[in-house]
Simulated assay, not measured.
Amino acid sequence: MGIREDMPLLARHEGVWDGVYSYYNAAGDKIDEHASRLFCRFPDDGPFPYHQTNHYTWPDGRKDIREFPAEYRDKRVWWDNDLIVGWAAEVGLDEYSRTVMLYWQRQGDPSLYLYEMIQISDDGQSRCRTWHWIRDGKLETRTAIQESLVSKDWRAVEAEMNASAE
């Protein structure tokens, strides 16, 4: 069986998502916020069965793009790149099939790790995500993300973006 068959909940996330990332320090004060557009892909060709690209835009005009190609094995998606090492797995105990859990560490900073929980709506049109950044066993930052599905057809949106950039 392949990634789509083994991870049907994660496969529901395929597509393009627009959202807002809000960051809070341990005291609950907002310390950052920016818009996002994420491409969650399960390409039929290429070396990686899952590939996510995150486009971030801040109100002051800053932009960042991050690539997260991933391998698949043991019913988990696995990342190991210049930025992070970690995994994503469906939460089997969720009888409603809404929850995916991630764990990752920043490369070169073993004192910091992160757990992420993603809930997708029953209609698949929205999702919310929370990150808990933990350094030396203590909460350092929380990230709250709200997203809406733009399109399941990431190929068409990607082609449109590439055409408008030329």
Rank of each mutant, 00 (worst) to 15 (best):
1 M>E: 13
2 G>W: 05
3 I>G: 03
4 R>K: 15
4 R>Q: 15
5 E>W: 08
8 P>D: 12
9 L>H: 08
9 L>E: 07
11 A>H: 06
11 A>S: 11
11 A>P: 01
13 H>W: 14
14 E>Y: 04
14 E>C: 06
15 G>Q: 06
15 G>H: 05
16 V>Q: 00
18 D>N: 07
19 G>S: 01
19 G>K: 00
19 G>M: 00
20 V>D: 00
20 V>I: 11
20 V>L: 00
20 V>Q: 00
21 Y>M: 02
22 S>W: 02
23 Y>M: 14
23 Y>N: 08
24 Y>H: 10
25 N>M: 06
25 N>F: 07
28 G>P: 03
30 K>C: 15
31 I>M: 13
32 D>L: 11
33 E>R: 01
33 E>N: 02
33 E>S: 06
34 H>E: 01
39 F>V: 01
39 F>W: 03
39 F>S: 00
40 C>H: 13
45 D>H: 10
45 D>W: 09
47 P>I: 05
50 Y>M: 13
51 H>V: 05
52 Q>I: 07
54 N>T: 12
55 H>K: 05
56 Y>S: 03
56 Y>V: 01
57 T>E: 15
57 T>V: 12
57 T>M: 10
60 D>M: 12
61 G>C: 01
61 G>Y: 02
62 R>M: 13
65 I>N: 03
68 F>E: 01
68 F>M: 01
70 A>E: 02
71 E>H: 08
71 E>Y: 07
72 Y>A: 04
73 R>S: 15
73 R>Y: 13
73 R>V: 09
74 D>C: 04
74 D>V: 02
74 D>P: 03
75 K>P: 06
76 R>C: 08
76 R>I: 04
78 W>G: 03
79 W>E: 09
79 W>G: 05
81 N>Y: 05
82 D>I: 05
82 D>C: 02
83 L>H: 05
85 V>K: 11
87 W>T: 11
88 A>E: 13
90 E>M: 04
90 E>D: 09
90 E>V: 04
91 V>L: 07
93 L>P: 07
94 D>R: 00
95 E>C: 09
96 Y>D: 15
97 S>H: 14
97 S>C: 10
100 V>D: 02
103 Y>K: 07
104 W>A: 02
106 R>L: 14
107 Q>H: 06
109 D>K: 14
110 P>C: 04
112 L>T: 13
114 L>K: 09
115 Y>S: 06
116 E>I: 06
117 M>Y: 10
117 M>Q: 10
117 M>N: 07
119 Q>R: 14
120 I>F: 04
121 S>F: 00
122 D>P: 11
122 D>F: 11
123 D>P: 08
124 G>P: 15
126 S>M: 08
128 C>W: 00
131 W>H: 05
131 W>Y: 14
131 W>A: 01
131 W>N: 00
132 H>Y: 10
132 H>L: 09
133 W>H: 04
134 I>P: 03
134 I>T: 07
135 R>F: 04
135 R>K: 15
138 K>P: 10
140 E>L: 07
140 E>Y: 03
141 T>W: 06
142 R>M: 12
142 R>I: 12
143 T>S: 01
144 A>S: 05
146 Q>G: 12
148 S>N: 14
149 L>N: 02
150 V>N: 08
151 S>P: 06
153 D>F: 11
155 R>F: 10
157 V>T: 15
159 A>I: 08
159 A>F: 09
161 M>V: 12
162 N>W: 07
162 N>E: 15
165 A>P: 07
165 A>L: 15
165 A>I: 11
166 E>N: 13
166 E>P: 06
166 E>K: 14
